[in-house]
Design a protein around this nucleic acid. Structure first.
Length: 311
DNA sequence: ATTACACATCCGCTTACATCA
DNA sequence: TTTGATGTAAGCGGATGTGTA
Protein backbone atom coordinates (compact mmCIF):
# COMPACT_ATOMS: atom_id res chain seq x y z
CA UNK A 1 0.00 0.00 0.00
CA UNK A 2 1.28 3.40 0.88
CA UNK A 3 4.88 2.89 1.54
CA UNK A 4 5.90 6.46 1.10
CA UNK A 5 7.26 6.60 4.59
CA UNK A 6 9.76 3.90 4.07
CA UNK A 7 12.02 5.82 1.83
CA UNK A 8 11.50 9.10 3.49
CA UNK A 9 12.38 7.76 6.86
CA UNK A 10 15.48 6.11 5.75
CA UNK A 11 18.88 6.50 7.26
CA UNK A 12 19.40 9.78 5.57
CA UNK A 13 17.16 11.36 8.09
CA UNK A 14 17.18 15.07 8.24
CA UNK A 15 14.42 15.83 10.57
CA UNK A 16 12.88 19.21 10.70
CA UNK A 17 10.82 20.33 13.59
CA UNK A 18 10.04 23.94 12.98
CA UNK A 19 9.33 25.88 16.12
CA UNK A 20 5.84 26.47 15.04
CA UNK A 21 3.90 25.71 18.10
CA UNK A 22 4.67 28.16 20.84
CA UNK A 23 5.30 25.54 23.44
CA UNK A 24 6.98 23.02 21.28
CA UNK A 25 10.47 24.17 20.74
CA UNK A 26 11.25 21.98 17.86
CA UNK A 27 14.26 22.78 15.85
CA UNK A 28 15.43 21.20 12.67
CA UNK A 29 17.37 18.12 13.39
CA UNK A 30 20.12 17.15 11.11
CA UNK A 31 21.48 13.92 12.30
CA UNK A 32 24.87 12.96 11.19
CA UNK A 33 25.16 9.27 11.47
CA UNK A 34 28.87 9.22 11.07
CA UNK A 35 30.49 8.19 14.31
CA UNK A 36 33.24 10.69 13.77
CA UNK A 37 30.84 13.47 14.31
CA UNK A 38 30.11 12.59 17.86
CA UNK A 39 32.63 14.75 19.53
CA UNK A 40 31.89 17.87 17.63
CA UNK A 41 28.46 18.73 18.80
CA UNK A 42 27.34 15.93 20.98
CA UNK A 43 25.98 18.19 23.63
CA UNK A 44 23.44 19.90 21.52
CA UNK A 45 20.03 18.49 21.92
CA UNK A 46 18.38 19.48 18.76
CA UNK A 47 14.93 18.34 19.57
CA UNK A 48 13.49 19.30 22.85
CA UNK A 49 10.20 18.21 24.11
CA UNK A 50 8.35 19.63 27.00
CA UNK A 51 7.59 16.15 28.16
CA UNK A 52 10.40 13.92 27.21
CA UNK A 53 13.46 14.36 25.15
CA UNK A 54 13.99 10.70 24.70
CA UNK A 55 14.29 10.96 20.99
CA UNK A 56 17.17 13.31 20.96
CA UNK A 57 19.28 12.60 23.94
CA UNK A 58 22.23 11.85 21.82
CA UNK A 59 21.65 14.06 18.89
CA UNK A 60 24.77 15.22 17.23
CA UNK A 61 22.82 17.88 15.58
CA UNK A 62 23.04 21.51 14.89
CA UNK A 63 20.35 23.86 15.89
CA UNK A 64 19.23 25.56 12.77
CA UNK A 65 16.20 27.53 13.57
CA UNK A 66 14.10 28.51 10.67
CA UNK A 67 11.14 30.15 12.25
CA UNK A 68 9.66 31.73 9.22
CA UNK A 69 9.82 28.81 6.91
CA UNK A 70 6.51 27.24 7.65
CA UNK A 71 4.28 29.66 9.33
CA UNK A 72 2.95 31.44 6.34
CA UNK A 73 3.49 28.99 3.60
CA UNK A 74 0.38 28.20 1.79
CA UNK A 75 -0.45 24.57 1.25
CA UNK A 76 -2.56 25.56 -1.63
CA UNK A 77 0.61 26.36 -3.45
CA UNK A 78 1.33 22.69 -3.79
CA UNK A 79 0.89 22.18 -7.47
CA UNK A 80 -0.57 18.75 -7.65
CA UNK A 81 -3.21 19.44 -5.11
CA UNK A 82 -5.48 20.19 -7.93
CA UNK A 83 -7.57 17.28 -8.86
CA UNK A 84 -6.87 15.32 -5.73
CA UNK A 85 -9.50 12.77 -5.27
CA UNK A 86 -11.54 13.01 -2.20
CA UNK A 87 -12.05 9.73 -0.60
CA UNK A 88 -15.31 10.68 0.76
CA UNK A 89 -16.58 10.64 -2.75
CA UNK A 90 -17.01 7.00 -3.61
CA UNK A 91 -16.96 7.60 -7.33
CA UNK A 92 -13.66 9.40 -7.31
CA UNK A 93 -12.34 7.12 -4.70
CA UNK A 94 -11.79 4.06 -6.79
CA UNK A 95 -8.72 5.27 -8.49
CA UNK A 96 -5.43 3.54 -8.71
CA UNK A 97 -5.70 1.63 -5.53
CA UNK A 98 -7.88 -1.39 -5.55
CA UNK A 99 -9.20 -1.99 -2.14
CA UNK A 100 -8.10 1.26 -0.67
CA UNK A 101 -11.36 2.93 -1.03
CA UNK A 102 -13.83 0.52 0.27
CA UNK A 103 -17.46 1.19 0.94
CA UNK A 104 -16.36 1.23 4.55
CA UNK A 105 -14.51 4.43 4.06
CA UNK A 106 -16.38 6.16 6.75
CA UNK A 107 -14.76 7.61 9.75
CA UNK A 108 -16.09 7.88 13.21
CA UNK A 109 -13.54 10.34 14.43
CA UNK A 110 -14.60 13.66 15.71
CA UNK A 111 -12.95 16.73 14.43
CA UNK A 112 -12.42 19.99 16.10
CA UNK A 113 -11.86 20.76 19.69
CA UNK A 114 -10.97 18.24 22.31
CA UNK A 115 -14.34 18.54 23.92
CA UNK A 116 -15.97 17.90 20.63
CA UNK A 117 -13.82 15.07 19.52
CA UNK A 118 -14.57 13.25 22.72
CA UNK A 119 -18.19 13.14 21.96
CA UNK A 120 -19.78 10.19 20.28
CA UNK A 121 -19.42 10.04 16.58
CA UNK A 122 -23.07 10.25 15.91
CA UNK A 123 -23.49 13.75 17.18
CA UNK A 124 -22.11 15.30 14.06
CA UNK A 125 -20.98 18.32 15.99
CA UNK A 126 -17.81 18.80 14.07
CA UNK A 127 -19.00 21.82 12.21
CA UNK A 128 -18.27 22.47 8.61
CA UNK A 129 -15.82 19.62 8.34
CA UNK A 130 -18.21 16.89 9.07
CA UNK A 131 -19.85 15.73 6.01
CA UNK A 132 -22.02 13.04 4.71
CA UNK A 133 -19.66 10.23 5.45
CA UNK A 134 -20.45 10.55 9.13
CA UNK A 135 -23.57 8.91 8.10
CA UNK A 136 -25.13 6.53 10.46
CA UNK A 137 -25.45 5.71 14.05
CA UNK A 138 -22.88 2.99 13.69
CA UNK A 139 -20.59 3.57 16.61
CA UNK A 140 -18.00 1.08 15.42
CA UNK A 141 -14.80 2.67 14.29
CA UNK A 142 -14.51 2.43 10.58
CA UNK A 143 -11.17 3.00 9.17
CA UNK A 144 -10.39 5.28 6.34
CA UNK A 145 -7.38 4.71 4.20
CA UNK A 146 -6.11 7.84 2.65
CA UNK A 147 -5.64 7.68 -1.04
CA UNK A 148 -2.26 7.69 -2.65
CA UNK A 149 -2.60 11.25 -3.73
CA UNK A 150 -3.76 12.38 -0.35
CA UNK A 151 -0.87 10.69 1.32
CA UNK A 152 1.53 12.11 -1.20
CA UNK A 153 0.29 15.61 -0.59
CA UNK A 154 0.47 15.20 3.13
CA UNK A 155 3.92 13.76 2.82
CA UNK A 156 4.98 16.63 0.70
CA UNK A 157 3.62 19.06 3.19
CA UNK A 158 5.36 17.26 5.99
CA UNK A 159 8.63 17.69 4.23
CA UNK A 160 8.02 21.39 4.23
CA UNK A 161 7.09 21.56 7.87
CA UNK A 162 6.40 18.82 10.30
CA UNK A 163 3.87 20.87 12.17
CA UNK A 164 0.99 22.87 10.90
CA UNK A 165 -0.54 26.04 12.10
CA UNK A 166 -4.33 26.16 12.11
CA UNK A 167 -4.46 28.05 8.88
CA UNK A 168 -2.32 25.56 7.08
CA UNK A 169 -4.22 22.72 8.55
CA UNK A 170 -7.53 24.08 7.43
CA UNK A 171 -6.28 24.83 3.96
CA UNK A 172 -4.71 21.44 3.60
CA UNK A 173 -7.82 19.73 4.82
CA UNK A 174 -9.92 21.66 2.38
CA UNK A 175 -7.66 20.82 -0.48
CA UNK A 176 -7.65 17.17 0.35
CA UNK A 177 -11.28 16.93 1.23
CA UNK A 178 -10.46 15.82 4.71
CA UNK A 179 -11.40 17.14 8.07
CA UNK A 180 -8.82 19.31 9.80
CA UNK A 181 -8.79 16.78 12.56
CA UNK A 182 -7.73 14.11 10.09
CA UNK A 183 -4.90 16.26 8.86
CA UNK A 184 -3.90 16.94 12.41
CA UNK A 185 -3.94 13.27 13.28
CA UNK A 186 -1.98 12.41 10.19
CA UNK A 187 0.74 14.85 11.15
CA UNK A 188 0.81 13.58 14.69
CA UNK A 189 1.17 10.01 13.55
CA UNK A 190 3.72 11.03 11.01
CA UNK A 191 5.80 12.74 13.65
CA UNK A 192 5.52 9.68 15.80
CA UNK A 193 6.74 7.49 12.97
CA UNK A 194 9.60 9.82 12.33
CA UNK A 195 10.56 9.77 15.94
CA UNK A 196 10.36 6.02 16.08
CA UNK A 197 12.60 5.78 13.09
CA UNK A 198 14.97 8.23 14.66
CA UNK A 199 15.08 6.14 17.79
CA UNK A 200 15.97 3.12 15.75
CA UNK A 201 18.72 5.04 14.05
CA UNK A 202 19.99 6.27 17.39
CA UNK A 203 20.04 2.77 18.77
CA UNK A 204 21.94 1.52 15.80
CA UNK A 205 24.42 4.31 16.12
CA UNK A 206 24.92 3.63 19.81
CA UNK A 207 25.39 0.00 19.09
CA UNK A 208 28.17 0.81 16.70
CA UNK A 209 29.70 3.19 19.20
CA UNK A 210 29.68 0.50 21.81
CA UNK A 211 31.30 -1.95 19.49
CA UNK A 212 33.98 0.53 18.55
CA UNK A 213 34.69 1.40 22.13
CA UNK A 214 34.90 -2.22 23.08
CA UNK A 215 37.36 -2.85 20.36
CA UNK A 216 39.35 0.21 21.31
CA UNK A 217 39.41 -0.88 24.91
CA UNK A 218 40.58 -4.31 23.93
CA UNK A 219 43.33 -2.84 21.85
CA UNK A 220 44.49 -0.52 24.58
CA UNK A 221 44.48 -3.28 27.17
CA UNK A 222 46.65 -5.30 24.91
CA UNK A 223 48.99 -2.43 24.45
CA UNK A 224 49.26 -1.88 28.16
CA UNK A 225 50.13 -5.51 28.60
CA UNK A 226 52.80 -5.19 26.00
CA UNK A 227 54.23 -2.16 27.68
CA UNK A 228 54.27 -3.87 31.02
CA UNK A 229 56.05 -6.80 29.52
CA UNK A 230 58.59 -4.49 27.96
CA UNK A 231 59.26 -2.92 31.28
CA UNK A 232 60.39 -6.25 32.61
CA UNK A 233 62.71 -7.00 29.73
CA UNK A 234 64.82 -3.92 28.99
CA UNK A 235 67.01 -5.52 26.40
CA UNK A 236 64.10 -6.51 24.30
CA UNK A 237 62.55 -3.18 25.01
CA UNK A 238 65.43 -1.44 23.36
CA UNK A 239 65.18 -3.44 20.21
CA UNK A 240 61.57 -3.45 19.39
CA UNK A 241 59.66 -0.98 17.34
CA UNK A 242 57.62 1.57 19.16
CA UNK A 243 54.03 0.87 20.04
CA UNK A 244 51.56 2.25 17.67
CA UNK A 245 50.18 5.06 19.67
CA UNK A 246 51.66 5.25 23.10
CA UNK A 247 55.04 5.71 24.57
CA UNK A 248 55.87 5.10 28.17
CA UNK A 249 58.68 6.16 30.35
CA UNK A 250 59.90 2.99 32.02
CA UNK A 251 61.20 4.83 35.00
CA UNK A 252 58.03 6.57 35.97
CA UNK A 253 55.57 4.31 34.15
CA UNK A 254 53.79 7.19 32.51
CA UNK A 255 52.24 6.75 29.16
CA UNK A 256 51.85 9.66 26.86
CA UNK A 257 51.03 10.49 23.31
CA UNK A 258 53.82 10.72 20.78
CA UNK A 259 55.74 13.95 20.43
CA UNK A 260 53.97 14.87 17.30
CA UNK A 261 50.77 15.41 19.17
CA UNK A 262 52.19 17.11 22.22
CA UNK A 263 51.15 20.45 20.85
CA UNK A 264 47.56 19.63 21.47
CA UNK A 265 46.07 20.31 24.85
CA UNK A 266 46.74 17.57 27.35
CA UNK A 267 43.29 16.16 27.12
CA UNK A 268 44.64 12.67 26.97
CA UNK A 269 46.46 12.91 30.21
CA UNK A 270 49.45 10.82 30.92
CA UNK A 271 48.40 7.69 32.65
CA UNK A 272 50.35 6.07 35.33
CA UNK A 273 50.06 2.44 34.64
CA UNK A 274 48.40 0.61 37.42
CA UNK A 275 48.30 3.58 39.67
CA UNK A 276 46.60 6.84 40.14
CA UNK A 277 46.86 9.32 37.32
CA UNK A 278 49.31 12.12 37.47
CA UNK A 279 49.48 15.46 35.74
CA UNK A 280 50.65 15.59 32.19
CA UNK A 281 54.16 16.46 31.22
CA UNK A 282 53.32 20.10 31.05
CA UNK A 283 53.47 20.25 34.78
CA UNK A 284 57.19 20.16 34.77
CA UNK A 285 57.50 20.70 38.46
CA UNK A 286 55.90 17.39 39.11
CA UNK A 287 57.88 15.54 36.56
CA UNK A 288 61.45 15.24 35.55
CA UNK A 289 60.75 14.83 31.87
CA UNK A 290 61.44 17.66 29.54
CA UNK A 291 59.47 16.16 26.75
CA UNK A 292 58.51 12.84 25.42
CA UNK A 293 60.77 13.44 22.49
CA UNK A 294 63.66 13.69 24.87
CA UNK A 295 62.74 10.47 26.58
CA UNK A 296 61.79 8.53 23.58
CA UNK A 297 63.50 5.25 24.25
CA UNK A 298 63.64 4.45 20.60
CA UNK A 299 65.51 7.58 19.77
CA UNK A 300 69.18 7.00 19.15
CA UNK A 301 71.09 7.56 22.31
CA UNK A 302 67.93 7.98 24.27
CA UNK A 303 67.93 8.44 27.97
CA UNK A 304 66.98 4.89 28.77
CA UNK A 305 70.26 3.25 28.03
CA UNK A 306 70.41 2.23 31.57
CA UNK A 307 67.03 0.85 32.18
CA UNK A 308 66.35 -0.70 35.44
CA UNK A 309 63.18 -2.24 36.64
CA UNK A 310 61.67 -0.36 39.48
CA UNK A 311 61.71 -2.18 42.65
C1' DA B 1 -1.11 41.51 38.98
C1' DT B 2 -3.00 37.16 39.97
C1' DT B 3 -6.03 33.35 39.45
C1' DA B 4 -9.12 30.17 37.33
C1' DC B 5 -10.98 28.33 33.49
C1' DA B 6 -11.66 26.90 28.64
C1' DC B 7 -9.49 25.78 24.72
C1' DA B 8 -5.96 24.11 21.38
C1' DT B 9 -2.29 21.33 20.49
C1' DC B 10 1.14 18.33 21.51
C1' DC B 11 2.96 13.53 22.69
C1' DG B 12 2.80 8.68 24.18
C1' DC B 13 0.26 4.82 24.24
C1' DT B 14 -3.26 2.02 22.61
C1' DT B 15 -6.93 0.16 19.74
C1' DA B 16 -9.22 -1.15 15.66
C1' DC B 17 -9.15 -1.94 11.13
C1' DA B 18 -7.16 -2.75 6.27
C1' DT B 19 -3.95 -5.12 3.70
C1' DC B 20 -0.77 -8.57 2.45
C1' DA B 21 1.96 -12.78 2.40
C1' DT C 1 -10.01 -19.53 2.62
C1' DT C 2 -7.85 -18.60 6.83
C1' DT C 3 -4.55 -16.50 9.60
C1' DG C 4 -0.80 -13.98 11.54
C1' DA C 5 2.05 -9.89 10.72
C1' DT C 6 2.30 -5.29 9.60
C1' DG C 7 0.95 -0.55 8.76
C1' DT C 8 -1.80 3.16 10.02
C1' DA C 9 -5.99 6.09 11.17
C1' DA C 10 -7.96 7.33 15.14
C1' DG C 11 -9.12 7.40 20.35
C1' DC C 12 -7.68 8.54 24.89
C1' DG C 13 -5.32 10.75 28.68
C1' DG C 14 -2.00 13.89 30.42
C1' DA C 15 0.90 18.04 29.88
C1' DT C 16 1.45 22.66 28.52
C1' DG C 17 0.77 27.31 26.46
C1' DT C 18 -2.55 30.99 25.45
C1' DG C 19 -6.44 33.92 25.89
C1' DT C 20 -9.97 35.79 28.71
C1' DA C 21 -13.01 36.86 32.48
Amino acid sequence: MMMLDKEDLGLSLSLSFPPHHPHHHHAPLHLNLMPSSVSSSSSSAAVTNHKSSSSSWMNHAAHILNPSSDLNSDPTAIPFLRGIDVNRLPAADCDEEPGVSSPNSTVSSISGKRSERDQPATTGSGGEDLDADEEDGDTSRKKLRLSKDQSAVLEDSFKEHSTLNPKQKTALAKQLGLRPRQVEVWFQNRRARTKLKQTEVDCEFLKRCCENLTEENRRLQKEVQELRALKLSPQFYMQMTPPTTLTMCPSCERVAVPPSSTSSPPVVAATRVGSSPLPMMGTAAAHHHRSMAAINPWAVGGPFNVLRPRS
